[in-house]
Design a protein around this nucleic acid. Sequence first.
DNA 1: CTTTAAATGTTATATACTAACGATTGAATA
DNA 2: TATTCAATCGTTAGTATATAACATTTAAAG
Lengths: 164, 164
Amino acid sequence: MIQAPENSVFDASGHDHGACIHDALTRAETLCAQQGLRLTAIRRRVLELIWENHRPTKAYDLLNSINAERGNAAPPTVYRALDFLLDAGLIHKIESLNAFIGCDAAHGDGHPKFLICRACERVAEIPSPAVDTALAREAKRAGFTIDHETIEIGGTCAACAQRG
Amino acid sequence: MIQAPENSVFDASGHDHGACIHDALTRAETLCAQQGLRLTAIRRRVLELIWENHRPTKAYDLLNSINAERGNAAPPTVYRALDFLLDAGLIHKIESLNAFIGCDAAHGDGHPKFLICRACERVAEIPSPAVDTALAREAKRAGFTIDHETIEIGGTCAACAQRG
DNA sequence: CTTTAAATGTTATATACTAACGATTGAATA
DNA sequence: TATTCAATCGTTAGTATATAACATTTAAAG
C-alpha cells in the first residue's frame, strides 16, 4: 500500500483505496451504460488494474498482468482496451511516460493537466481554469483551434521533497 | 517548399527558409563555442536536417537521411546526437509525437510550449508567461517543485482551418 | 434462430530506444 | 611533438512500445 503524504492534490491520507477503485469502476459502468458503450471483461479488467496500481501504468505491465491471469493476451488485446478507455475518457495517456492513468475527473470541464512526481511516481490530475484561459488566449491570438492539450508537469511532490 | 499561411506564430510568408536554417546553425555554433560544447559533424548534420524539415522529425527519419548520405549509421548514432542537442537546448522533443524540433527560443526564459497543427504538421513554439504563472501557482498550491513542463497543444492552425 | 457488426484471438512486423564494448579522435599537457 | 586520457563514434545486440492484417468468436438486433 502507498504511504500517505500530507499535501492536498497528492494527498493519500485517509484514502480508502478499495473504495477508490470501486468508485472508479462504478463511474465507468454508469458512463458506459449512459453512452451505450460496452465495458467488456477485458476492458473492465484493464481499467481495474490501472486503478489498482494508482500510478501511470505501462501497456506491457498490463499485458503481463492479464497474461498471469488468463494466459492468452497479445499486445493488441491490451492496446485495444486502452484505446477504448481513452476514447471513453476513462483513462488518460501520460505521453512523457508512455503510460496510462485513470481519469479522476479532477479536471472538470477543462483539459486534463498532470503534476508528475519523479520520486514516488504518483500523479495528480489538477484543475486550472487559469491555465486553460491563458492557453485559450494564446491559441486565439494565433488563430489556432485547440483539439487536445498535453500538459504534463514533472517534478517533486511535497512529501518526497520533505523526505529528502 | 512549404506554402505560406497568413497568421502570426505559424506565419511562413516571407520566410526565407535557407536563412532560417543558416541562422539556427549559426546560433548553435555560437552557443556551443560559448559553453565549450563540441558541435561535431554528426550533431551538426542532425540539427541541420531537423531545421531543413522544419517539422517534428522522427529519429528514424533522421537515421535514414544520415544513412543515405554516409551509409554507416545505427540508432545510437542518431540518439546520441539528439541527446546532445536536447541537453544543449538546441532542440525540443515533442512527446506526443515522438519527434524532435529545433528550438527557436520563442519561449524566452519560460518553459517551451507548442501549438501543433495536425493538418499541416507544423509546430509553433509560443511564449506564454500567463501559462507559466498559472502553472507555478498551481504547483505552489500543491507544494510541488517543477523540473520540467511538457505542454503540447494539438489542433488546427488558421491556414489549415481556412482551406477546410 | 439468424444475421451481422463488434469484439477478440493470433501472427507478424513496425517503430522507438538503450546497453555494452571496442575503436577512434582530438584536446590537454608532459 | 609525443603521450595520454576522456569524449565521441562504430557496431552488435537487445528491450520496449505499438500497429497491421486477418481469422474467429461473441452478442445485439432483427
